[in-house]
Amino acid sequence: MSILVLAEHDNNELNPATLNAVAAAAQIGGDIHILVAGSGCGGVADAAAKVAGVSKVLSADSAEYANGIAENMIPLIMSVIDGYSHLLAPATTYGKNILPGVAALKDVAQISDIIRVDDADTFQRPIYAGNALATVKSGEALKVITVRTTSFEAVAAEGGSAAVEAVSATGDAGKTTFGKSELSSSDRPELTSAKIVISGGRGMQDGSNFAMLEKVADKLGAAVGASRAAVDAGFVPNDYQVGQTGKVVAPDLYVAVGISGAIQHLAGMKDSKVIVAINKDEEAPIFQVADYGLVDDLFSAVPQLEGEL
C-alpha cells in the first residue's frame, strides 16, 4: 500500500494540518508520500521531506499551483495518483475544495472528515453534526479521504529524510483565476490548533466587546473563536466560526461566552477536553456539555476573569 498526502501550505510554510493528515496515513499503514504543489514552494517541499514517517515528497513547483486553484490541482493529482491506494488531505477548506474532484474523475467515493482509522478500508466519521458516528467501509481501489485534524495527533515535523522528486507541471486549466485573499492576521495561536480557545456569541452584543475576550486570550495564550450568530452579525470575520459548518476545534480548554449551545455550535467544540460556559441564562443548552458553568452576566464576569488570571 502507498498513500499520497496532499500538503497544505502557503508556498512558504507547511500548514501543520498536513501533519495530522500524515498521522492518519501512518495509522492506515504503508509507504507515505507527500505531494507539495505550489509556486516557489521549494522550502515547503524541504520541510515536507523532514516530516516523520514520510518516504518521498513529490514537488510540483509551477505558477498555476500558486493559490491551490482546484481546477489546476486536480489534473496534477490525476497525473501522479496511479499506484496509490489512498489519497489523503486535511479536512480544511483547502482539502475539501480539491479532493472530491479527484474522487469523481477516478470514479470512486470520497470519505469525508474521518475521525478514526479502523483498518485500511474502514473509517469512522461524524454525521448529523456529530450526533452520530458512522463506521464506513470502502471497497474502492483508491480511497479518497479528508481527515479531521483534531482527531489525529500531529506527527513530528522533524526526523524524516525523504527524497524530493520533481513532478512535471500539468499547466493552467484556464478555468479560474485567483484575485486576492483577505486573510485575518493575528498574533494569537491558530484556532484549530490552539490549546485554549475562548469564543463569543450573540451575547457579546457588539464586535468591539470582543476586546474583552482578546484580553483574556492574550493572558492565556488562547485563540479567539465565535458562534455563527456572532459572525453573521458582523462582530468578527467568518474564519472565527466554530461549528458544524465552520471550524472544528478540540483544545484542552474551551470557554464559551454568551453562546447558547446550539447543536451546530456543539458539533465544532464538544470534543474539547474541558469546557467552560459563561451565560446569564441557566437554561442555556451549553451548560449540558460544560464541565464548569458560570451563570452570570458576561459583561461583569469576563473582565473579572481577566483580572484574576
Partner: peptide, 18 residues
C-alpha cells in the same frame, strides 16, 4: 460504493458542575 458498518452515538460527556 460505501458500506455503512455501524452507526453509533458519540461518547457522552460527563456532567459538569456549576
Amino acid at each position: 460504493r460505501l458500506t455503512v458498518v455501524k452507526v453509533e452515538e458519540p461518547p457522552a460527556r460527563e456532567a459538569g458542575i456549576t
